[in-house]
Nucleic acid binder design. Structure first.
Lengths: 343, 343
DNA sequence: TTGAAAGCGCTAACAT
DNA sequence: ATGTTAGCGCTTTCAA
C-alpha cells in the first residue's frame, strides 16, 4: 500500500533508490525488466516502489531514451459511430504491443487538424494514424518530416504521404449506384452532409453520380445539411425532399443514421419500402440492426481499417527498415438489407 | 515551406538557433511568446523555425519546466453516445485554456482502469478527469498521490478522492420510479446491462426498486444482458421478457438505445404505447429524437458534466490554492416524451 | 550483477 | 533585450 503522505512532490527514482538501498540505475533496470538483476534485489526494489506508490516519469524516460510509446490517432469526430469503431480496431491490435494510442479530434476542420497534429508531433510519437488523404500543405509537410511512420486511413483515393489503409469511396459510390439501377430504380434522390469538408462523402457522391450518368441518369433531387447525423435530421430531410419531389423511387443517404431516420419516416407515412421507394445508407452501422426493416448499406470496414493500420505501424516500429508507402485497399461489402430489393 | 530533406533526426532548438543566429534561449522565448524579444529578432527566429519546419520537443520542455499541459480524461467507453458528449463538453472548455485533453478508455474494467491511469499519470498530467467514484484501491491511491487536481465525474453517490461533478443516479432511479407510479403503472419490468461493472446503472436500479418498494411494489420481471447497447438487443430483451411475462404494463430500460429497440418492437407488434404498456430509457440521447414516439428518458447532463469538470480543473490549474474537494451535483431532468403518460 | 558519469532538449534563474 | 549556467529525472554507455 502506498504511503498516504500528501506528497506534493512526485516521487523519483532516487526515492526508490534510497528506500531500497540500491542504486538508481539498478532500480531503473528492475522497473523496466531490463538487464540482469538478482532475484533478491529485484524483489527489494519492487517492494520499495510499490510501498512508496512510485509512478515512473515517462517524460524523463522518453527524453533520455529518445523513445516514446505513443501513437497519435487523428480523426474528425467521435460523435458518429464510425470512428469509435476504427479506434477500437486500433486499440485491439496495439494492446499486443507496448504502443499506446492517443486520440486527437479535428471536427473536420483543416486548421484544427493542423493544430492537433502539431501538438501531437511535439510529443514525438512513434507513429501517426490519421484519417483521410486531404490535408493542408502545412499538415502534409509535418507528416513528411515527422520522422516516424504515418498511416493515412479510411480512404485510398489520393496520394498518401506514406502508408495508407482504406476503401475507395468513389468505388463505393459507384457500386451502390449499380445496385440501385439493377434493382430498377430510376428517380433517385441524394441526402447527405454538406461536403466541402467531408471528402469521403464527396467522393462517394462523385462515384455515385458518375455511374448514374453512364446509364444516362441524373440525380433527380438532392439535399444537403450540416451538423451531426441524427434520426430527426433524416426524417426532416426526407420529408422536405418528398414534398418537393414526390415521385422519387429511391433515396440514397450519406450515412446510416439519417438513413434510419428516413426509413422511420417513410414507414410512418405508409410508403411501401422498398416497393414504392427504396433507400440505402452508408457505413454498415451494427448499432442500427433492429430497425423495422434492415437498412441497405455498405460496410466501410471500419474496424478492420483500424486493425490493419495499427498492425502496419507496429511492424514498422518493430522493424524500421520495412518499406514505406504500403497501400492497403479493402473492399466494402454491399449489405442489401431489406430496403433495396424491389422484387 | 519546410525543407524537404528527409531528415531522420528531428530538429532541435539549436538548429533554429544556428539558422537564425540567435541564442537558443532567445529562440525558446520567441517560440513560447515569453519574455521581451525585439520585433526584429522575433521575426528572424519565426522565419527560421517555419523555414526549417521545426516542431518543438514537448518532452524536453515538460521535463525542464515541470509543467505538462495535458489533462487525462479516463472513461469506460466510446461506443455509446454518452461519453463522447462528455468529452465534447470537456474539449469545449479546455479550448479556452492551453490545456489539452488526452483520452483513455477502460472498457468498464477496473484492471484496465488501473493500467490506463498508471500510464497516464506517468506523463505527469496537469489534471485528471475520471468517470465514476468506484476504483480499485490501487487506483484510488494513485489518484490521491497524483499531485494534480482530480475530478471524478458522472456520479455523486459516493466518496470522491478530490472534486466531483455528476448526478445522483440513485435519485435518478427514484425519480423515474415515482413518475412511473404516478402514471398508474404497476407491473414493471426492468431491462438493462449486467451491473457488477456499471455502478451507475446499478445505483439507478437500486434507487428505482427502493422507491417502488415504498409503494409496496416489486419489479415484476427483470432481464440483464452484457455487451454493447444496440437496437437489436433492445428488441430481443423485450420479446423475451414479454413472452415470459405478458402482463407487464411498463418497461424501464437502463439506456436509451435498448429502449429505442424495445419501442420499435412494441409498435411493430401492435402494442399500444404508452396506453397498454409504457416505457422509458435513460440518458436523454438526442441522436434518437426522431423515433416514432419520443422515448421517455432522463437527461444525464452529460455535456454539462464535461464542461463543469473541465472548468474546475482549469481553475485549479490556474490557481493551485483553490480548495480541493468541490462537489457539484447536477439535477437530471425527466423527459416524459410520449411513452410514459398513460392518459 | 551492479554502479558512475554523461547527457537527452529544453527552460528557470541569473547574469549582462 | 539577450546570453549563460545549471539542472529537470531518467537511460545509455562504460567501467568495475
Amino acid at each position: 500500500m502506498p504511503v498516504r503522505t500528501p506528497n506534493k512532490r512526485p516521487l523519483t527514482l532516487r526515492d526508490v533508490s534510497e528506500a531500497s538501498g540500491v542504486s538508481e540505475m539498478t532500480v531503473s533496470r528492475v522497473l523496466r525488466n531490463k538487464g540482469d538483476v538478482s532475484e533478491a534485489t529485484r524483489k527489494r526494489v519492487q517492494d520499495a516502489a510499490k510501498q512508496l506508490g512510485y509512478v515512473p516519469n515517462k517524460i524523463a524516460g522518453a527524453l533520455a531514451s529518445q523513445r516514446v510509446n505513443l501513437v497519435a490517432v487523428i480523426i474528425p469526430s467521435l460523435g458518429n459511430m464510425v470512428f469509435p469503431e476504427v479506434l477500437s480496431g486500433v486499440s485491439e491490435v496495439l494492446a499486443n504491443t507496448d504502443l499506446q494510442p492517443v486520440v486527437g479530434v479535428t471536427d473536420y476542420l483543416p486548421e484544427k487538424e493542423e493544430k492537433v497534429l502539431f501538438e501531437m508531433l511535439s510529443w514525438r510519437p512513434s507513429g501517426v494514424i490519421i484519417a483521410g488523404l486531404e490535408h493542408s500543405d502545412a499538415s502534409r509537410a509535418m507528416l513528411r518530416q515527422a520522422g516516424c511512420p504515418v498511416v493515412e486511413i479510411m480512404d485510398v483515393d489520393g496520394e498518401p504521404v506514406d502508408a495508407c489503409v482504406g476503401i475507395s469511396h468513389r468505388r463505393a459510390g459507384r457500386k451502390m449506384a449499380e445496385s440501385i439501377l439493377q434493382n430498377g430504380y430510376r428517380r433517385i434522390g441524394f441526402l447527405g452532409t454538406k461536403m466541402p469538408l467531408d471528402h469521403r462523402a464527396r467522393k462517394r457522391f462523385e462515384g455515385f453520380t458518375q455511374t448514374l450518368a453512364k446509364s444516362g441518369i441524373e440525380i433527380t433531387d438532392q439535399e444537403f445539411y450540416s451538423g451531426g447525423s441524427a434520426l430527426a435530421k433524416g426524417r426532416e430531410l426526407t420529408q422536405k425532399m418528398l414534398e418537393r419531389t414526390p415521385d422519387l423511387d429511391f433515396l440514397y443517404y450519406s450515412n446510416d443514421m439519417i438513413g434510419a431516420g428516413g426509413l422511420l419516416y417513410l414507414l410512418e407515412k405508409g410508403y411501401d419500402v422498398p416497393g414504392q421507394i427504396g433507400i440505402a445508407g452508408f457505413n454498415g452501422v451494427e448499432l442500427l440492426d433492429g430497425l423495422p426493416r434492415k437498412l441497405a448499406s455498405m460496410d466501410a470496414c471500419r474496424r478492420e481499417i483500424g486493425q490493419r493500420a495499427a498492425q502496419i505501424l507496429a511492424d514498422r516500429v518493430a522493424n524500421p527498415d520495412t518499406d514505406e508507402g504500403l497501400v492497403v485497399e479493402l473492399t466494402p461489402k454491399l449489405q442489401p438489407g431489406e430496403t433495396l430489393n424491389r422484387t
